[in-house]
């Protein structure tokens, strides 16, 4: 393409670039500035104050929220990978070829339920009079309904359900890309099924797993709906605390500082798995 066309190239790229700058970069900068502002009563005072960050470091309930968010996110990420890997494996290597696409499609279909609705659906299952309690009581396994809704167990279950589907998809894509020759070679050289998996298949699919796990981490730690609907207000996660600041107190500076902290956590996770991450392969 000759260089004289450059203006046209700029012109075509401009709308998307301008949109991203105006509605993403600018708000982001404003949020950064806001996190350094303070509230005097109800009036906003711009400045370069670190008092919001000091408040975050100072308040026990915020520390607690950061810890809860991290605990839930790490549990969810680990459980989802452990449950999704065998599922992806079975669909990739055990289900007959002609049923594979159908099996995969079915395995991730509920992924497309609206996420507010999906959390509500888990509430139906886990509620005091819900499906699980009724079933267990009918079977005579428990005498009294057990509390499942409004607990961390419910939050984790709802998250794991969602991310198992997401990870099954990404891990499946990795497994089928793998040439069967690797497995055949390992078997020929005398490796048993487990050794083949542990020394050959697992290392080769590790980038895919880490990429999926990172995605899980990012989406999980930033989600407000699932902990709010399923976990209730017994223990708050960081997004819940942000929403409390916005809703009850209209404390935009503190909410912004918390959002920056949330991004810091994601950046840390990114650095921790940068070695294996292949974001272009999603």
């Amino acid at each position: 393409m000759p260089l004289r066309d450059r203006t046209l190239g700029w012109g075509l790229a401009a709308p998307a670039l301008l949109w991203t700058v105006a509605f993403f970069v600018v708000p982001f900068v404003v949020m950064g500035a806001m996190s350094l502002a303070t509230l005097d009563g109800r009036t906003l005072v711009w400045g370069l104050s670190l008092s919001n960050y000091a408040e975050i470091a100072d308040k026990a309930y915020i520390w607690r929220a950061i810890l809860v968010s991290l605990e839930i996110t790490l549990t969810v990420t680990a459980l989802s990978v452990l449950l999704a890997y065998p599922l992806a494996w079975i669909i990739a290597f055990r289900v007959p070829q002609r049923w594979q696409r159908l099996a995969l499609l079915l395995a991730i279909l509920p992924f497309w339920t609206s996420y507010v609705v999906r959390s509500y659906a888990w509430l139906l299952v886990l509620a005091r009079e819900g499906v699980v309690n009724q079933t267990l009581m009918t079977l005579g396994l428990i005498a009294e309904p057990i509390t499942l809704a409004n607990t961390r167990i419910a939050t984790v279950t709802g998250f794991v359900h969602f991310f198992v589907m997401l990870l099954t998809l990404t891990i499946f894509a990795n497994l089928v890309q793998l040439s069967p020759n690797y497995r055949r070679a390992a078997m020929d050289l005398g490796a048993n099924a487990f050794q083949t998996f542990w020394h050959v298949v697992l290392p080769l699919t590790l980038p895919g797993i880490v990429t999926g796990a990172f995605l899980t981490f990012v989406l999980c730690i930033g989600d407000y709906i699932t902990p709010q609907i399923l976990g209730g207000n017994n223990e708050l996660t960081v997004p819940q605390v942000i929403m409390v600041q916005l809703g009850r107190r209209a404390d935009f500076p503190l909410a912004s500082a918390l959002a920056i902290v949330l991004m810091g956590l994601v950046t840390l996770a990114y650095l921790a798995c940068a070695r294996w991450l292949r974001l272009d392969r999603i």
Binding site: L17, V25, V30, M31, I221, G222, D223, L262
Partner: peptide
């Protein structure tokens, strides 16, 4: 720049725009 919003959670995108 065009890909960047993917890495930021929706809550933060919404919060920034709201402000």
């Amino acid at each position: 720049l065009l890909i960047a919003p993917l890495t930021v959670s929706y809550l933060i995108v919404g919060l920034g725009l709201l402000m």
